[in-house]
Amino acid sequence: MTEMSRSAALPRQPVETERVRRPHEERAAWRLVAPAAMLIILILALPMAAVVALSLTDYQLGAEAWRFVGAANYADLAADPVFWRSIVNTVVYVVEVVAGSTALGLATALMLQGSSILAPVWRTVFFLPVMASLIAMAIVWEFMLHPTFGLVNGMLGLVGIAPVNWLQNSATALPALAVIGIWQQFGFAMVLFLAGLSGIPQALYDAAEMDGAPSAWSRFRLVTWPLLAPVTLFVVVISTIRSFQVFDTVHALTKGGPNKATEVLLYTMYAEGFEFFRTGRAAAIAVLFVAAMLVLTLTKVVVVEKRIHLK
């Protein structure tokens, strides 16, 4: 009753532009969203604010005292060659995995498109690594990359290539992790590309045929590639986001080594925060990490918008 009289006392002019708010509906809606709203505040908004705040302190987990240090953590990071190494490694890894999984995903999708009754079988096979626990498969890869008893060196030995200690050699460790990353991700890209391909009307290929496109390549250039462009961009962005978060393989297989060759951003943050308990410094890395993800995800949003508009 009180709410009724209160809303009746409100100025009436907004009624024209927006739906009349009915108090009972409002209460019912709030009952539905209240748990979500509370949890968003508690385990998303507050921690987000906390991470920014912590990044400006010298807090160490378990320490009694802490003080505000301003941008000192960021300045330290900027002066730290390991941190820079970590950024460079992350970027190299991301570029390799994104290029590899996108290209491989597109190639397999194209090969499966219009292919025989076996297409579902191939699709299942290529998607299997996406489903499998990466950490368990990383351990399998570690065994396969074993310098003496590993399958990879064994196979390469057949064609006369000398054994390589893949994960302990600073030249090969990061590329080896990238190969595992590509192996794990390309099936995901393939599924997105297949969805994109199925959205291209057959009539356009018929039209290209009637218009005299002389080869499969020219039909690809005229129809497939341009119509797939938004999906491709989307796949690139989403695999960038995923590979940016590389952690499992690094932690399980190389611990950032040898000689920082596989030190990547998330691993650096983990080590700072949960091994050395330099909480403030880890928070600073987290803030930079979020900033990077923000840029990437905003790109994704823009791309999705564009995709919808092209339809």
Partner: peptide
């Protein structure tokens, strides 16, 4: 406002707030 918070939440991977969650 709530929907805005949801959209913003989409941008933040949980790894980034692992530190304060751990502290909490």
């Amino acid at each position: 406002l709530l929907f805005g918070a949801v959209l913003f939440g989409l941008l933040v991977p949980y790894h980034a707030i692992a530190v304060p969650l751990f502290v909490g």
